[in-house]
Design a protein around this nucleic acid. Sequence first.
DNA 1: TCTTGACCTTCCTGTTGCTGTAAGGCTTAG
DNA 2: CTAAGCCTTACAGCAACAGGAAGGTCAAGA
Lengths: 141, 141
Amino acid sequence: MNISEAAKLSGLPAKTIRYYESIDLISPPRRAANGYRHYGKADIDSLCFLRQARQFGFNIDQCRLLLGLYKNPQRRSAEVHQLVSDKLEEVDAHIRELAETRELLAKLVGACANDGDADCVIIDRLAGQQKQTLPLEDIKQ
Amino acid sequence: MNISEAAKLSGLPAKTIRYYESIDLISPPRRAANGYRHYGKADIDSLCFLRQARQFGFNIDQCRLLLGLYKNPQRRSAEVHQLVSDKLEEVDAHIRELAETRELLAKLVGACANDGDADCVIIDRLAGQQKQTLPLEDIKQ
DNA sequence: TCTTGACCTTCCTGTTGCTGTAAGGCTTAG
DNA sequence: CTAAGCCTTACAGCAACAGGAAGGTCAAGA
């Protein structure tokens, strides 16, 4: 089948499929006489796998590893488990970070007068937090 | 003061300060006779403001708006409030999305045998989720 | 005076994971 | 015959910088 059908079946844009080929994430498919890419069932399986893995938040390099395990009947499930629990930790860390930011933002939103005045707690909070101070003699306009 | 001192005081890398100038986020500073950038106290304030805003998750365009409000004594705090509560919603949405992914990942991690066998629930889950099916007659190798 | 090291400048490339667009060839229906 | 709808390659661009090259400047020490 041609690339647009592969795209439909796999749920990936044709552009993305070509891109994955260009970075050697998938192996180049056979070509028809007219130069068109020609995909088989196994290719579709790999593409579906990649779409899912990306949806789970794995980046391209992690997908590369996962795809390698997917295609390798000699894999040990422990290797897969390791990759996925690493990713889980990554996502947890990200969530913690965002949650922290969220709380700070919520505080700002709550504290702001939200009216027509120029006085604004938010602006005050974002400003005036210098990282370091210089000795007086170094401060020249 | 020179750029490296501005960097120290603001907590932004000198590279970033030059970058902010290149995208017109900050106004170009005065130059000394030798061509070196020369920053004053107001410049540092803007840079600090930007560092904080970026830390709060605002992107460059949002920072542009915030910085405009910061520098504008005619601002109404309601405008600032709007920007920040929009960002809060953005962050909330992002967290919800990540939390969903997290749960899926946790399920995978919990379900995987995590041993030396090739059988792997994770691999099975990532594979075989075709987006669409084609009518039989269209399926040719 | 010369040199050394720490600054500073501009410009170009690379990062991640694609997406958009241009310019052109192939295929199929009307 | 032509128009639509595929397909191809190749190049540019997004965000928000970071790294490095090549070269100018400055201050201190031998």
